[in-house]
Every structure is written in C-alpha cells, then in structure tokens.
C-alpha cells in the first residue's frame, strides 16, 4: 500500500515539475510542499509506525514492474555489520529521493522488540528509509524466494528494477552499494 502511495506521490511530483516549466510560480509554490511533507515524516517526535508482516504480505515489494529501482536490505538492530552499512543505504535514499528509487529496510529484529529496541534505534539514528519488520519464522520457505543462493546470513541486499536484479550476501561499502545499484538504476 505504501509503495503504491509513494508512486502516486512521485507521479504528482513529476506532474508538478512538468507544469512548472510553463508556470514558474506554480513550481515554486509546490516545491516547499514536497519538502515539508518529507520533513514531517522524519520529525523525531513523530510516532514511528512499523509494519509487521509475514512473507506473503512482503512479497509484492520484490516484483514491482515499474520504473522504480528497489533497494531492499535485510538487517537487524543487533547485527553489527548491518548497522555499520546502514548509513550507505540512508545516503542512497537521500541522494536519490527525487528519483524513482525506493530503499526498504526489512528488519529481522525479534517481533517482541519492536517497541523496546527497533523504534528507539530508528529514532536515535534518525532512519529515514522505510522500515518493515518481517515476522515469518518459517524461513526455509521464504529465504529461497528472495534468492536461491542466499544462505540466510544477514546483512543481505536485493536490488532490482523490473527483471534486472542483483543479490548481495554480506556487507557492502558505499562504493560497492553504488556499483551494484547504478547499472540497474541507469538501465
């Protein structure tokens, strides 16, 4: 649902930019609204909502057939290398916020630690990318659906646009993330 909303949002933004070419005052008027909407989302005091889903509910994010490049990272707050590479995903999310790029952080934190651990972590680190908690213990069913070669170790990252994709098991540097992301994004 959120994915769909985001797309409408991008579409609206594009429409406004397109219109802005003819009428600069419209453009100037609309741009701050976009900024403001994003700011509201990241305000530290705003209550953080985290969707907790099973794999069937999560599955649609792996097979969107639109022009968006999806960057899906599997992580957890207790996973040291995951936390270490998180800034690279946040940077990508910020850098491409005006482009058809969607960063989704799929958390494998324990479901009973959403309030005690995950939300405080997101608040402390001011995480701006979308975080979804995957609560699905039957992992042998869903791990191969993400990628046949995935052993199940985290961190792991799946990047795709339409039918073009890449899967990385293990942590990435900023440069490694970009070198996996850019060929797909630019295709």
């Amino acid at each position: 649902m959120k994915v769909v909303l985001r797309h409408c949002f991008i579409l609206v933004a594009i429409t406004f930019f397109a219109c802005g070419g003819n009428n600069s005052s419209t453009k100037n008027h609309n741009e701050p609204i976009v900024e403001k909407t994003e700011e509201i989302n990241v305000e530290p005091e705003a209550p953080i909502e985290i969707r907790s889903v099973d794999f069937n509910q999560l599955a649609p994010i792996f097979s969107q057939q639109n022009d968006t490049t999806y960057v899906i990272n599997f992580w957890a707050t207790w996973c040291v290398p995951c936390v270490k590479e998180l800034p690279h995903f946040e940077a990508l999310n910020a850098e491409y916020s005006k482009q058809p790029v969607k960063v989704i952080l799929v958390s494998l934190d324990m479901p009973d630690e959403i309030d005690t651990r995950l939300k405080p972590f997101m608040q402390a680190k001011a995480i701006k990318s979308e975080v979804i908690l995957l609560n699905d213990p039957d992992m042998n069913i869903w791990i191969p659906k993400v990628n046949e070669d995935w052993s199940g170790a985290i961190p792991a990252t799946y990047i795709y646009k339409k039918n073009l994709n890449t899967f990385i098991e293990g942590s990435v540097t900023h440069a490694e993330l970009l070198s996996s992301f850019l060929p797909i994004f630019n295709s």
Binding site: K84, I154, S171
Partner: peptide, 15 residues
Amino acid sequence: EAKAIGCSIKVKQQD
C-alpha cells in the same frame, strides 16, 4: 537442506 536466517560469521572487514 533447509535455510534459516542467521548472523553472518564475523571476520575482519576489508574496508
């Protein structure tokens, strides 16, 4: 063979 999520084995980072 049956898969499960686990913590990656920790080695010194190359970066």
